[in-house]
């Protein structure tokens, strides 16, 4: 992997993650881990009329997974739950400012998105399948 990948702003998000913590009463929440490397992320949402009014996340793991989740929380504020389900790998890479990422690390980069989508699906009348027909 290109060392440029560990850019300054990625390390900033890793050390000082945005929207970190928990709500007292979240409307939606989901938590999952990547058992291969032990990365773990929890996402909580406040929802207002189908839109994400506010978001918190908590987690531990590598810089890529944690920074990626932190950036994602900035991006999804104000989105509808449906809109979050259309986010994909490319959006994650764009947030990170990376053109590509090794197969071994893509799971780290997309863990936050996966958890966010699971949380969002929990607040929807019906799951919104993506191309693979899955909710994540």
């Amino acid at each position: 992997m290109d060392e440029l990948f560990y850019r300054e702003y990625i390390l900033e998000h890793y050390r000082k993650p945005h929207n970190y913590g928990r709500f007292e009463h979240p409307d939606l929440a989901y938590e999952d881990d990547n058992p291969l490397c032990g990365d773990r992320i929890r996402v909580e949402l406040k929802v207002d009329d189908g839109r994400i009014a506010d978001v918190r996340f908590e987690g531990k793991g590598c810089a890529i997974s944690q920074a990626s989740a932190s950036m994602l929380t900035d991006v999804v504020k104000g989105m509808t739950l449906e809109e979050t389900l259309r986010l994909g790998k490319d959006d994650v890479l764009e947030n990170l400012g990376a053109e590509s990422i090794s197969a071994a690390r893509i799971k780290c980069a997309t863990l936050g998105l996966k958890v966010l989508k699971e949380a969002a699906v929990g607040g929807m009348p019906q799951a919104w399948p993506d191309e693979e027909g899955q909710a994540s």
């Binding site: 992997m1 290109d2 060392e3 291969l36 490397c37 990365d39 810089a63 890529i64 090794s102 690390r105």
Partner: peptide
């Protein structure tokens, strides 16, 4: 330090050094 082992291994990979990270 606070560098996650996966990040260590990724940076080392860029230097041609193969190590294992995980449990």
């Amino acid at each position: 330090g606070d560098i996650h082992p996966h990040d260590i291994a990724s940076i080392l990979d860029g230097e041609g050094v193969c190590i294992r990270a995980g449990h």
